[in-house]
Structure formats: C-alpha cells, structure tokens
Design a protein around this nucleic acid. Structure first.
Lengths: 235, 235
DNA sequence: CGAGGAATTGAGATACATCAACTTGCGTGG
DNA sequence: CCACGCAAGTTGATGTATCTCAATTCCTCG
C-alpha cells in the first residue's frame, strides 16, 4: 500500500504552516517525539477501511482523498472530500475504529501520524491540541452544510453548488483539476451516475462549464449558480 | 422569551453528571466563576436565530429543541434534534454568529451559559475543555451519519431508521413522547409533509407502530426496520 | 490496435412532490 | 358547554424529478 515510507522532515515541509504543527517553535518541531512518515499512494488506493482499528491520522499534502461510508446493502456515500492541507483519520483519537474508508482519488502524498504519539503530543502542546479541535469544528460545520445540501436541495442545485465550491479553492476563471468520476459525484451528491452525467451535459450545453481530460473549467460560477438554482435556493 | 431566569444551582442539578461539568470537584463547581441561568421556554419559542451574534451556549435539561438552517428561498432543514443532556450553541466558541436557529419543540428547561465565561472556564479546567470537545466530536459523528441517511437512503428507510432511533432513548416497547409535527419530520428527513404522512399511515396499517396524542409506540423496532428497509440498507 | 472501464444517451418505471379537497382535533370565546 | 375556527393531518389525483436498465460511444491504457 505505501510506497517507500520515509521519515519526514517536518522542519522543511511545505505544508508546515498549514498543518496542525503550524505555530510550533523550531525547537518543538525538532523535538516532536514522534515519527512522521512520508507516504505516497497511487489513485484508487485504500488507506484504511471503515471499521479497521485506527492507528494513524494523515495530513494530505498533495492530491485528493474521499472518505466513504458503505451501507449493509452495498450503497456507498462519500462523506467528505479531502484536499491539500486536510487532516483525516483523527476520529481514531476518540474511537478505536475508523468511521469511514479512506481512498485516494489521485496519486496522493501524505504525512502519516501515529495516533498514540499524536495523542501524547496534543496533551503536551496546546497549540497542537487547539489545531486538532479546530479541524473537528470545521469538519462539523462542513458536515452540517452537507446535510442542508442533501436534505433541502434538488439535483441541479446540489451539483452546481458543489462544482462552484470545488473551484473556489482555485483562482477564479481558471481550469481546475477535477479527479472525480461521475459515479463518485453521484455518491457524494446522493444521485445516480446517469443523472449526474445528464446534468453535466446540460450545463455544458448551456455554456456554464467545459471539461477536458481531468480539467474542469467554469467561466463564471455566479452564472452557474444562477442558472442551476432558479428557485433561489443557493445564495 | 425567557420566563423568570434564575441563577442555577449547579451543585444540586439533576443533570450534573451528564453535563459538561461532570467530573468537576465540588470546590470547582462552587467556584465556577460564571453565572448559570436557569431558563424555561414554551413550545415553538425561538432561543436564537441563525446569524445572531452568539452570546450563550445552552444545556438542555428537559424538553426538545430543533436546530434549523434556512435557505435563501425559505426551504428549511432541521440539522439536529436535541434532547435531555445535549449542549448546543457552542459554535459560538469559534464563530461570532450562531450557525442555526434554535427552536423549542416542547416546553423546555435549559441552563444558559455565557460563552465568554465558558471559554475562560474551559481554558482553566481541562475536564470542561475535554467535555466540550467530546460533544463536538459526537455532533460530527452524528452529522456524518445523517449525511449517509439523506444521501443514500430512500424515504421509508429514512423514516423507519429515524423513528427507531428516536425510541432507542427509551425502554424498548414503551410509548415515547413524540413532539414532532409531520412538517418537522419532513424538514428533518428531507421529505414533504404529505409524503411523511402517507408513510406513517402505511406503517400504522402494517401494525409497525401506533400513535396517540403526542405519544409514539413501536412494539418492535426490529420489525419496523425489517419491513421498511427491504433492500437491507439499514443494518 | 484492441479491450475494458467510464461516460453518454434513450426509454420506461417509480418514488416523491405538488396541489387541492377534505377531515380531525382542539383551543377559544360566546 | 357548545359552536366556531384554525392548524395539523390525511387522502387523492396528477405531475415531475430522479432512478433503472440497456444499448452505444468515448477514452485511456496496455
């Protein structure tokens, strides 16, 4: 699963100031008392499976990961999508088992943090503790937003809102990496892959977006929202 | 809004060992350095409105409260339902504004905690800090479960799962208080009130549940789940 | 160049929403 | 205590959004 795990050098990490170790002194960083493994996995690789005993949390440095819950009958729901800078697997600090399966959407680089050591570290360094809590809080807010999306919006609205938020991480008007398949879009938005496909085609027909390879281009997200959310559901 | 707020006596509170102050010594409890107001509101009363500047968190002692988000076009989504022992409004520890509206479903008794004082207290007493974090974590887990419900299950499954979970707080086989209207059920489950009504009628016809006044009786939750979730979605 | 998964497209079925009429329950005021 | 009135609930008819199943095309990669 992991290709050549190495001990990471946190001092010179590009993610340093966006990670849970942001704000630590150089001394603290040098003396973390914990090995941070640098790992890298190809697309479709599973980092862990829902129900597995939780041993590690991960910081995503490059790439994208989905967190999936699967029902008894096989239906899958993508609970969260993770990007550059996100921390995940940290439910292991409170539960013995992972609550989702984590699967790479692209080739992905991560830092792997031992949960026991992280627990100790977080007890020792308040800024780490706070950083983790802040991530929890953010995850909660995001989750509640998703509840509203899924419970109160129709398909066009869900898709349009999602796409424009996906792009919001990049400079406006640029083409952005878009590694999700139609099926994954469906599993995230609670729709069938066919319906997603039709909606995407419809958006393209109206000139609201274009796609090529794994690049998505939305000339004007405001237009997209406006056209897809005629009812005014998306503000 | 508040009827006769009084300074609460935390020492003799019935909720003491289920609240965020559980585990505090008697000395700590006596010296909280914070006024806890005892308030009581009738059904349908709004405790705060989404977007309001957040001043207080609340512990629910008796009754039930809904947390609602409202879309620009007026559609409402109930994000969370709160019961005996639940803490809410604590997003005010990280955000300046409340992220939902809080509305009482029944006559409700609460403890009102000043957020600034709570923040200070949580910094001073690790067990309070931990207790609050634990609530965040629980809320996150619950929210993710709701995402799966809304994204991957159909109407029967959602309703059946919800009803049996609602009852799980009470001894099996008992009739339980059920203060939700059909509309509120719909706003929680992402369904129209008419559809909820039809499904309830169907469940009754099949003998899976009975209702009278504001009491719900489910003889056997396993049966309910079994019949409503033929596909095996609900384990 | 060929093969296999992903995407698209169409036709048909269905789950759910919408709209409208009607009933039931219940508090209120005469 | 009854009658009224309103809100909640029910029920039916109809519309529509979305799913399902199946066939076809498009990519991508070996």
């Amino acid at each position: 699963m992991t290709t050549h795990p190495r001990i990471s050098d946190c001092l010179h990490c590009a993610m340093r100031d966006r990670s849970i170790f942001a704000g630590l002194s150089l001394d603290d960083l040098r003396d973390l008392g914990m090995e941070v493994h640098d790992i890298s996995v190809p697309a479709t690789d599973m980092l862990y499976l829902e129900g597995d005993r939780a041993r590690y949390a991960y910081t995503l440095r490059e790439g994208a990961v989905k967190l999936v819950k699967t029902l008894a009958n096989g239906r899958a729901q993508i609970v969260r999508l993770l990007h550059h800078g996100d921390l995940f697997g940290f439910e292991g600090l409170r539960e013995t088992a992972y609550q989702h399966s984590a699967i790479a959407l692209t080739r992905t680089d991560l830092c792997r943090l031992d949960l026991v050591a992280l627990e100790a570290l977080s007890r020792r360094l308040p800024s780490v503790h706070d950083a983790i809590n802040q991530r929890w809080f953010n995850a909660l807010q995001q989750a509640e937003t998703r509840i509203v999306e899924l419970g109160a919006k129709n398909a066009d609205e869900r898709l349009a809102t999602f796409l424009s938020q996906w792009c919001s991480a990049y400079p406006a008007g640029d083409a952005v990496p878009f590694p999700l398949t139609r099926q994954e879009l469906g599993e995230f938005l609670g729709l069938s892959t066919e319906h997603v496909s039709r909606l995407m085609a419809e958006f393209k027909r109206r000139g609201l977006l274009t796609e090529r390879k794994n690049l998505l281009h939305i000339p004007d997200t405001r237009q997209l929202i406006l056209h897809a959310c005629a009812s005014g559901a998306c503000a």
